[in-house]
């Protein structure tokens, strides 16, 4: 097909969109909705994954000890841990140190912890263990938890697993929602194009007997679907960037330096938005073309 022909048919496609303005708007709205949900899910998943990775990289095992141990028993446990393979570093944190640390974390709200000093201190003492190889962390944690006097062992993996479980839910719910919305968009787009097909029935008939190829006749309708998808993609990308920006500014205002700290574990803003927009663009175009393909199969028997 020649470029000039393409230009001609492109114009026809746009004319078709304008002719059914209301339906075109409905189509664009529905495509935008699908892509926005898709974009939000993607951004959420990307970020949770990024946080999970961050947590996983700061691998250390916390070994909480039961309260009733005397200092020699505590030391014995420390020695036993040191004897395990691949241990990089081990530090002891007493109940008092744990409380101090907690107070610092709470900052201005540390009066909540008043009266918990000494006898009343609910926090356990613990060993903080770092391993050489993050991959062995599960094994090592398992061995330590079997030691006598150890109340509980936690390590990054727990948090990571919990986070990954939550992305699983986002994926499932997101996929279902996206699937339903995509079907609705395809339906609306195909009906929009059906209207153009009906309006151009006579023209299509003439094209057929003058010897237009199927591709030539279909092109304007494919373009129509494509443009609907593209506009939806651009709108939803714009909204997503705006929403994400808004989220950042709100978090920054309310949580200040804490958020800046946390945000280093989030996915990088520009990179994420760029990738997500590309995905939205591709999916938008895909939905548009499927929508027009459906209408062409159903209504345009050339």
């Amino acid at each position: 097909m020649k470029i000039r022909t393409f230009g001609l048919q492109f114009k026809e496609g746009l004319i078709g969109l304008w002719r059914n303005r209301v339906m075109s708007l409905a189509s664009i709205g529905s495509v935008t909705a699908v892509l926005l949900v898709l974009g939000l899910s993607l951004v959420l998943i990307v970020n949770v994954n990024s946080i999970a990775e961050y947590v996983e990289s700061s691998v250390e095992i916390k070994v909480f000890l039961i309260d009733e141990l005397d200092s020699s028993q505590v030391e014995t446990i420390g020695a036993k841990i040191k004897q395990l393979e691949g241990i990089k570093e081990i530090t002891f944190e007493s109940k008092e140190q744990a409380l101090e640390k907690y107070k610092k974390q709470l900052g201005n709200n540390n009066n909540l912890l008043e009266g918990l000093e000494g006898e009343n201190n609910p926090l356990p003492s613990s060993y903080i263990v770092k391993v050489e190889d993050p991959n062995t962390i599960g094994d090592t944690a398992g061995k330590i938890s079997a030691f006598e006097g150890v109340e509980e062992v936690t390590y990054g993996k727990d948090v990571v697993d919990r986070l990954l479980k939550s992305t699983y839910m986002i994926r499932i719910v997101g996929s279902i929602l996206i699937g339903i919305l995509a079907l609705i968009s395809i339906f609306i787009i195909s009906n929009t194009i059906k209207l153009t097909v009906a309006a151009r029935r006579k023209e299509i008939n003439i094209m057929k007997f003058v010897g237009a190829t199927d591709g030539f006749i279909r092109l304007p309708f494919v373009i129509e679907g494509l443009v609907l998808g593209l506009i939806g993609a651009v709108l939803s990308s714009g909204m997503l960037v705006a929403l994400y920006n808004y989220f950042y500014s709100i978090m920054g205002r309310n949580f200040g330096s804490f958020f800046i700290l946390v945000s280093s574990s989030l996915a990088p803003f520009n990179q994420t938005m760029y990738n997500t927009s590309l995905v939205l663009l591709a999916v938008g175009v895909f939905i548009g073309i499927i929508g027009s393909a459906v209408s062409l199969r159903k209504f345009l028997n050339v």
Partner: peptide
């Protein structure tokens, strides 16, 4: 002209 556009004649 429409019939000629369909068979992709030049302008």
């Amino acid at each position: 002209a429409f019939a000629m556009q369909i068979v992709e004649s030049s302008k």
